[in-house]
Design a protein around this nucleic acid. Structure first.
Length: 353
DNA sequence: AACTCGGGGAG
DNA sequence: CTCCCAGAGTT
């Protein structure tokens, strides 16, 4: 079959398939732009099963964009705790304030209007305007890259500039413009349930024999992705310092992992340090002059991102009183209101209770 | 164009 | 272990 014909048959077969195979999610039975926007931000690089509880929590805590705009950033980050990619929460909150303050609470009405908002890129803008307003903009996410690369035999790397452009053009050619929302939903559903990364269910695929990868046994080699960078290890020493007043916390600032979240005072080094080496560190001296250090757990190691691995050790600091003004001393009850990385959250559960 | 940003699940 | 997930911002 020629590529012209498959460009005609693809949307038809896809939409016919979707009528009996659509997935039902909490954010699908609405055209409320706020709920659709929120769901699209949560689902970036995040599986539906992981994101759904956070979507329900966010809607309960912040039912409207006005509620979200009015909230403190710490409260938004706390609701986001454990989901990862925390810039999504900060950008979401920032955009909510922009919508309420600058747009008088009115959501953007077209693709370019949404694209201006922090945290809304080409994918989210297309998804929101197609789902909420049925405007003709094709989504291009990981599912779409995979479905199109296989179906049309495209070897252009999906993480190259050329690839982004080429797949977007093709997706918009295929898009059923009068039914953009359903088309976008259908192609992502197909990628998620049939055209899976490994062991796809080709026998149940509506594209069937028209799929280039199926015809040519290229399923496992498409889509093509460029190589990733080298992994850099990082060594974290967390100081669990406490006095009768409570525990010592600091807020992470700067453009780094877990920005805006709270943690025990941290000493980062290029390798693990001994308690003796740590005891002469200025951060320890600032906490208390009569501090003794004790290791309470040997090691926690986790590759958190494709390019970096965090290795962490935890230490207890016994301080009669805490001298420093540098860090925040939070009472037990207040800790519950602060967003912390998962590695810290595990410790709080073990030691503060 | 390359790098940075989480956490969880599947194989 | 490796790879992927309803990507986007920064440098």
């Amino acid at each position: 079959m020629s590529s012209h014909n498959i460009k005609i048959s693809f949307p038809k077969n896809l939409l016919r398939w979707s009528k009996k195979n659509d997935r039902n999610f909490p954010w699908k039975q609405t055209t409320d732009p706020y709920k659709i926007w929120l769901s699209e931000i949560i689902l970036q690089q995040t599986r539906v099963e992981q994101g759904t509880p956070y979507y329900l929590k966010m809607i309960a805590l912040f039912p409207t964009v006005e509620h979200l705009a009015k909230a403190k950033e710490d409260a938004v980050l706390k609701a986001w705790q454990g989901l990862g990619y925390y810039s999504r929460a900060r950008n979401l909150h920032s955009a909510a304030k922009y919508i309420v303050d600058e747009l008088k609470g009115k959501f953007p009405v077209d693709y370019n209007g949404w694209l201006i908002l922090k945290g809304v890129g080409p994918y989210a803008a297309a998804a929101i305007v197609s789902f909420a307003y049925n405007l003709p903009h094709a989504v291009v996410d990981g599912n779409v890259y995979r479905v199109l690369a296989r179906c049309f035999g495209i070897e252009t790397p999906i993480d190259s500039t050329e690839g982004k452009k080429r797949f977007s053009i093709l997706a918009n050619e295929l898009l059923k413009k009068k039914d953009a929302g359903r088309f976008n939903q259908a192609i992502m559903d197909l990628g998620a349930t049939i055209c899976k990364p490994s062991s796809p269910l080709c026998n149940a695929c509506p594209i069937g024999k028209n799929c280039f990868a199926k015809k040519n046994s290229l399923i496992s080699s498409l889509p093509v992705k460029n190589k990733k960078v080298k992994i850099k290890p990082r060594f974290f020493h967390y100081m669990i310092a406490h006095s009768e007043k409570g525990f010592l916390f600091e807020k992470r600032t700067g453009n780094d992992i877990w920005k805006g979240l709270y943690q025990f005072p941290l000493i980062e080094a290029t390798k693990f340090l001994t308690p003796l080496q740590l005891s002469s560190h200025q951060i320890i001296k600032n906490i208390s002059s009569s501090t003794k250090i004790k290791i309470i757990e040997s090691l926690m190691s986790k590759q958190l991102l494709s390019h970096q691995k965090i290795e962490a050790k935890f230490f207890i600091l016994h301080a009669k009183k805490i001298n420093t003004e540098k860090y925040i001393v939070e009472k037990k009850k207040h800790i519950k209101n602060l967003a912390v990385p998962k590695i810290i959250d595990q410790y709080i559960k073990n030691f503060i209770h």
